[in-house]
Amino acid sequence: MVRKLFKRGYATLVYLFLYLPIFFLILYSFNDSKYRGKWNGFTLRWYEELLKDRAIMEALYNTFMIALLAAIISTIVGTISAIAIHKMSSKWKVVFMNVTYIPVMNPDIVIGISLLALFVSLNMRLGFVTLLLAHITFNIPYVILAVLPKLKQLNPYLEEAALDLGATPMYAFFKVILPEIMPGVITGALLAFTLSLDDFMVSFFTTGSGVNTLSIRVYSMTKVGVSPKINALSTVLFLGVLVLLILLQKREKNLNE
C-alpha cells in the first residue's frame, strides 16, 4: 500500500515537472500585465496582438509550409528508399543503413553548419529553398526507419501473389504493398512533420535573412525580452497539439472497434 502511494506520488511529481511550465505559460497568456509575474486580471489582449503581429504570422506560415512540404517529399523519397534498401543484398544494406544513420547520429548543430557550408560553397541563396532541402535531409532517415520494420513484417510472397494474379508491378505496389505498410508510412510522415515543426538548430543555420520559422522568431524575441505574445502563441500551439492528439486517439479507437 505504502509502495503504491509512493509510486503514485513519484509519478505525479514527474508529470508536474513536465507540465508546470506549460501550465504557467498558459496562465500568463491571459494575464493583463506585461512584466510582473503577478496576476493582474484576465485579458485576451495578447491573443489580439499575436494575430496582428505580421512577423509571427509569417513565421507560422513558413513553419507549417516547410513542415508540410518536407514531410510530403521525405515520406515519398523515404518510402521508396526503404523499399529499395529492403530488397538490397546485405552488403549494400549495411552501407545504406550507415548512411541513413548519419543525420540521426550527428548532432543537429553539425548538420546545420555542414549544410550551411554546403549551401555557401554552392553559392545558393539562403532562404526558403535551403531550409526545405535541409529539413528533407534530416527527415528522410526517420521515414526510412519507420517504414523498414513494416516491410520486414510483410509476407514476402504478397507482391508475387499479386503479380501471379496478373497485377503489374505498379498495380501490385499501390493495391497490395502500400496498404500493408501504410501504418509505417503514416508514422514516418507524422514523425517528419513534427521534427520539422520542432526544429530550431538546423533551421537556424540554413535560413537567410527575411525567412523565419517560428523557432527562429521565438529565439530572436527572447533576445529582446520576454513578451506575453509568446505565451499566447505557446497556448495556441499546445492546445492545437492536444486537440490533434485526442482526435487521433479517437480515430484509432474507432478503427479498432
Binding site: L18, Y19, L20, P21, I22, F24, L25, Y28, Y35, R36, G37, K38, T194, L197, D198, D199, F200, L214, S215, V218, Y219, T222, V226, I230, N231, L233, S234, L237, F238, V241, L242, L245
Partner: peptide, 23 residues
C-alpha cells in the same frame, strides 16, 4: 505531448518560471 510543442517554447517556459518576477 510536450515533445510535440515547440522546443524553443518549452525552454522559454522555464525562463518565465525562473526569472526574478517568475512564478
Amino acid at each position: 505531448v510536450p515533445l510535440w510543442t515547440n522546443f524553443l517554447l518549452r525552454t522559454y517556459a522555464w525562463m518565465v518560471l525562473l526569472r526574478d518576477q517568475g512564478a
